[in-house]
């Protein structure tokens, strides 16, 4: 069932973002920031965790999932290290994705040319 809900929830989040893009004057960059911030706020509640249990990648692959990952990481780090976890937790949890994007970005810049 997770496979079905992954599609539906992932798609639904993108529909919400598209609504924001088409019905307001926000640029795509603004919409993405809105959603990552919304994900961080929702990530602070138990509900987003429940959504992840239920919809799997549907809740973690779209950008709100990134905000959720940051908040979850902070929560974990704070539990282990106290206040300093506020500074280290978020990026530790998201490190894999960010580092992958940096490395693959550099690699692609060396290998490919923009072709349009």
């Amino acid at each position: 069932m997770t496979f079905l809900w992954a599609f539906v929830i992932g798609g639904a989040m993108c529909v919400a973002a598209q609504c924001l893009l088409d019905w307001t004057n926000l640029t795509p960059a603004h919409v993405l920031v809105v959603f990552v911030v919304a994900g961080a706020i929702a990530g602070g509640t138990p509900w987003y965790h429940a959504l992840v249990q239920w919809a799997g990648a549907g809740a973690t692959v779209p950008l709100p999932g990134f905000g959720y990952t940051l908040v979850k990481g902070i929560g974990k780090a704070v539990a282990q290290e106290g206040v300093w976890g506020l500074f280290t937790g978020g990026l530790s949890a998201a490190a894999g994705g960010i580092k992958a994007a940096v490395l693959f970005g550099l690699a692609a810049a060396l290998v490919f040319r923009p072709k349009a």
């Binding site: 798609g11 993108c14 893009l21 950008l63």
Partner: peptide, 15 residues
């Protein structure tokens, strides 16, 4: 946004 909102869109924005 279907392609921009997922983490793959984030990667596209860096690459």
């Amino acid at each position: 946004m279907g392609a921009s909102l997922p983490i793959t869109g984030f990667a596209n924005a860096m690459v």
